[in-house]
Design a protein around this nucleic acid. Structure first.
Lengths: 149, 149
DNA sequence: ATGACTGCAAATGTTTTGCAGGTTT
DNA sequence: AAACCTGCAAAACATTTGCAGTCAT
């Protein structure tokens, strides 16, 4: 079995919990894998519904949780009250920069910051297990538009 | 007028928006100022109710939004679905370290990280306007407990 | 049979909104 | 009067849960 195939990984994960791979779960995984950026449960639900009109919202919510536990998805929280999911397998950790005007997001990573975060935590007696960092700003394009306008 | 008094600041802010200082708003501000750490709207509502039994939840929500806009409070989001408020006036910006076991939070600041964040954003074409950074880990006490247990 | 899975509808929990009545200017 | 403020109840919103029926082992 090719363990670099996400569907196999998921099936394997499910089996380890005595759960099963089902058509719905397969569909949700497939839709998820075909999306590039950060998708919400509702967006995914709408896309999945185009392929299987009978699918239920709850199933999408439940499956996304499973995908997160399987390490195939990662929950990201931009603080606007909706949980988004991004690909979690094979991708390394990264943080986000979000444009406050147009909502564009890019993924970034700065090793020096990562190192300083670990040190900072240690200095306060904490063993770092994870972090979330969101930078908010104005992107080049939006800045240009504002100058013109 | 002593502009280092939070109540005056709030009154001033309200006036600038043609809004009024009222007993309820004053009470909510006072309760807020007496709390140390991060308080939720509901917690604040319960505290305020002890002093004025007739106060309404909606008023607390609305007033906390106003306090944020006035710069006296700041919204913080630990990602658990509840918005918390911390003091925003006179306090400088800081980030948070949260213990995943006991929930203890401490406030931290690292100038080098702040500088690198700005650079990182600039490198990607963004003018940084703000950021949120939460470090998650295990605190010293919880680590000790685990070693014993 | 047993245990898992589904869609649906109802429940949840936080926050927002509409509104009728009251107060300030 | 006009504009603002209040508490209440209802609405809104994302998410979770209970359930009855279905399916796989």
């Amino acid at each position: 079995m090719n363990m670099h195939n996400e569907k196999d990984i998921f099936t394997d994960f499910l089996a380890s919990r005595k759960l099963r791979m089902t058509p719905q779960r397969g569909l949700i995984l497939d839709v998820f894998l075909r999306t590039k950026a950060h998708i919400t449960s509702e967006e995914l639900y709408n896309k999945a519904k185009k392929r299987d009109r009978s699918i239920g919202q709850a199933t999408v919510y439940r499956t996304l949780k499973l995908l997160s536990q399987a390490g195939l998805a990662r929950e990201v929280d931009f603080g606007d009250g909706v949980v988004r999911y991004e690909h979690g397998y094979g991708d390394e950790h990264h943080d986000h920069i979000i444009c406050e005007r147009c909502g564009k997001q890019i993924e970034v990573l700065d090793e020096r910051i990562e190192r300083l975060q670990k040190k900072l935590a240690a200095r306060h007696g904490f063993t770092l297990t994870g972090h979330s960092m969101y930078l908010y700003g104005i992107c080049r394009e939006c800045r240009r538009k504002e100058e013109k306008g």
